[in-house]
Amino acid sequence: MNEIIFFGRNKKPKLIKNEPNKIIKPIQFKFENENENENEKQIKQISTSYFATIFLFENGKAIEYSRENDSNQNPQKIQIENIQKVTVGYTNLAILTKEGNVFAKGLYMDSDDEKKFINISSLIEDKNDRIIQDIVCGDDSVYLLTSNQNVYGIGSNRFCQLGFDSKTLKKAEKPILMMKNVSKIFSSNASNSFFLLNSNQELFCCGGNNYGNLGLGESRRKETKIQKLTKIQNIPKGKIIDVQTGNFHSMMLIEDENSKRKLYSTGNYQFNGLGKTANTYEFTEIKSSLFENDDNILEFSIGNCNTLILTSNGKLIASGDNEYDQLGTGNTEDNQIFLIQIEIPKLRFNDISNYHVSSGNQNFFLYYSLSSFSNF
């Protein structure tokens, strides 16, 4: 069985038919494509952004709600089999298959047709490095982590998000090697920044830093672009579970030796989900009475100007842009600087650890899945 809860902007094409353009209170999501019986398939992952929303099922098939869909606003089947993971950026999307191939489409891809998928993993020059283990999309770029633990980037480099000077490299039409000996890669669908962990568990970043959102400290907050992968100093102790970045802020989830998880954020507080009332230029802990002693943070998701957090006590916590009342406060003129708890329908399943969150440009999903991609 599935459970998908949706709220926020019901943008064109409408994700839910016969509903208003903005959905204030979280509601149950149901697939309209009844003839395909999609609603009986088990959800594996949801990835959403301005460009599209993709639903991936456990059978390795996926459907796409795209801004280019037909006038009936029906979802389209993605004609790729054995899909392992999907990731949607602001202007592009990428798909990882179980065989380790990556197909992508959208702007900044080396294709005459932005709607056509191309196998970008096959474009890696080293033929022995074409089996891909993980993928993430940024704003206008795609990042590939190979089975040899090497990271490649493809797409736009206008904010130096590929780790090179944007004046000499405006975009990469083929994957370019960014770093070797990498264990994890991190980005976010609305981000022009990129993070990675190397094999020594050191965190590196590059790309847009307009609001100090890369956490490099006060001395570097005025650098709007970080041209090469740069090590971040003063990282809090513990195991880094996830790092995500939006246009104005970044967040990091760290697990300590007692398996307690804490959130840290950096960037600008005025428009987004920083969870604090002052700018910060290093990753500092977010403290809130909503995080009780017996409560633990399961995962979080960053959209353009929002943060969505899920806890082990079943709390859905958010802050940030509220233009479409996607936070359910009833006041669209009031951005939520402080973390607030969002009222949600009673959940069908008791195992809260199998629920996951996904933030888009102006909408949110809470969904049940036995697969987790926050720590892929």
Rank of each mutant, 00 (worst) to 15 (best):
A52K: 08
I16P: 04
Q244L: 04
F271I: 15
N128W: 04
V357Q: 01
F31V: 08
N21K: 13
I46P: 05
D334H: 15
T277F: 15
F164C: 09
R220I: 01
D134K: 03
I132F: 03
N279S: 10
I154A: 07
S353P: 07
R220E: 10
Q336D: 02
I340R: 04
L177P: 00
I176Y: 02
K127M: 09
T245Y: 12
S122P: 03
I46D: 06
N119P: 01
G303F: 03
Q244P: 05
L339M: 09
I124N: 02
K25Q: 12
F57N: 02
K260T: 14
S353C: 11
Y143R: 01
G89V: 12
N363S: 08
Q42V: 07
G8V: 04
F195G: 00
I124E: 06
N181P: 00
R221M: 06
K231D: 05
N313P: 02
D139C: 13
S372L: 03
S374W: 09
I5C: 00
I241N: 09
G215P: 07
Q79N: 15
A104L: 01
N72T: 13
I16A: 08
D165E: 10
K98C: 04
C137P: 03
D134F: 01
S371Q: 07
N18F: 13
G215L: 01
K262A: 15
M178L: 06
Y152V: 08
N10F: 07
E81V: 04
L56W: 10
G360Y: 06
L263T: 12
S122L: 06
F103T: 02
S371T: 10
D165N: 12
S369P: 00
V357F: 00
N350F: 10
P345M: 00
F51L: 12
E19F: 09
